[in-house]
Amino acid sequence: MRTKLSVCLRKTRFVSENAALLVAGRADVALRSYRCDRCGQFHLTSRTKGKRMPRPADPTP
């Protein structure tokens, strides 16, 4: 699905995925990064519909 230009312009842009993930790690909600097809940089989103999420790490040693 193509990102709407109005959405792209409202969101913070990150030059790298690592920079976006650093900010996402400080958030209170689960966020993931994605490369925008409009600006070519990375944005954050909380949407997960249709996306595979990594399984949580096994807490047992």
Results as ranks from 00 to 15, higher is better:
Arg32Phe: 01
Gln41Arg: 10
Arg38Asn: 14
Thr60Glu: 12
Arg52Ile: 08
Asn18Glu: 15
Asp28Ser: 10
Arg2Leu: 09
Arg55Leu: 11
Tyr34Asp: 01
Tyr34Lys: 00
Leu44Val: 13
Val7Met: 01
Lys49Gly: 10
Arg38Pro: 08
Asn18Val: 12
Arg2His: 12
Arg26Glu: 10
Met1Phe: 15
Val29Phe: 09
Gly25Ala: 05
Ala57Phe: 08
Phe14Trp: 09
Met1Ser: 15
Ser46Asp: 15
Ser6Glu: 11
Glu17Trp: 07
Thr60Gln: 11
Tyr34Asn: 02
Arg52Pro: 01
Met53Val: 04
Thr12Gln: 11
Arg32Asp: 00
Thr48Asn: 00
Gly25Phe: 06
Thr12Tyr: 08
Asp28Gly: 13
Ser16Val: 14
Leu9Lys: 14
Arg55Glu: 05
Cys8Asp: 13
Arg38Gly: 08
Leu9Val: 11
Arg52Gly: 03
Thr45Ser: 15
Gly50Leu: 00
Asp37Thr: 00
Gly25Lys: 05
Ser46Gln: 10
Asp28Ile: 13
Leu22Gln: 14
Ala57Leu: 12
Lys4Ile: 00
Arg10Thr: 10
His43Phe: 06
Ala57Met: 11
Thr45Gly: 08
Asn18Phe: 15
Phe42Ala: 05
Leu21Phe: 14
Leu44Ile: 13
Ala19Pro: 07
Asp28Cys: 09
Ser46Met: 09
Gln41Lys: 12
Gln41Asn: 15
Arg2Glu: 15
Thr12Asp: 11
Leu21Pro: 01
Gln41Pro: 10
Arg35Asn: 04
His43Ser: 09
Ala27Gln: 11
Lys51Trp: 02
Ser46Thr: 13
Leu22Gly: 10
Lys11Cys: 11
Glu17Asn: 01
Arg13Thr: 15
Ala24Pro: 07
Arg13His: 15
Leu9Met: 12
Leu31Asp: 02
Arg10Val: 06
Val7Thr: 04
Leu22Cys: 09
Arg52His: 12
Phe14Tyr: 15
Arg47Tyr: 03
Ala27Lys: 11
Gly25Val: 03
Lys4Asp: 08
Glu17Ala: 03
Pro56Lys: 08
Pro54Arg: 06
Pro61Val: 04
Arg32Cys: 00
Ser16Trp: 15
Pro54Ala: 13
Ser6His: 05
Arg55Asn: 03
Glu17Lys: 09
Val23Gln: 06
Ala27Glu: 10
Val29Ala: 08
Ala57Pro: 07
Pro56Ile: 12
Arg32Asn: 02
Val15Gln: 10
Pro59Gly: 06
Arg10Ile: 03
Lys4Ala: 04
Val15Ala: 14
Asp37Trp: 00
Phe14Gln: 01
Leu9Ser: 14
Val29His: 03
Asp37Pro: 00
Ala20Leu: 11
Met53Gly: 01
Pro54Asp: 11
Asp37His: 00
Pro56Val: 09
Asp28Gln: 09
Cys8Leu: 01
Val23Gly: 02
Asp58Glu: 00
Leu22Ile: 13
Val29Glu: 12
Pro59Val: 09
Leu5Tyr: 11
Leu22Thr: 14
Leu5Pro: 03
Arg35Pro: 03
Lys4Trp: 06
Ala57Lys: 12
Glu17Asp: 02
Arg52Val: 13
Leu22Lys: 13
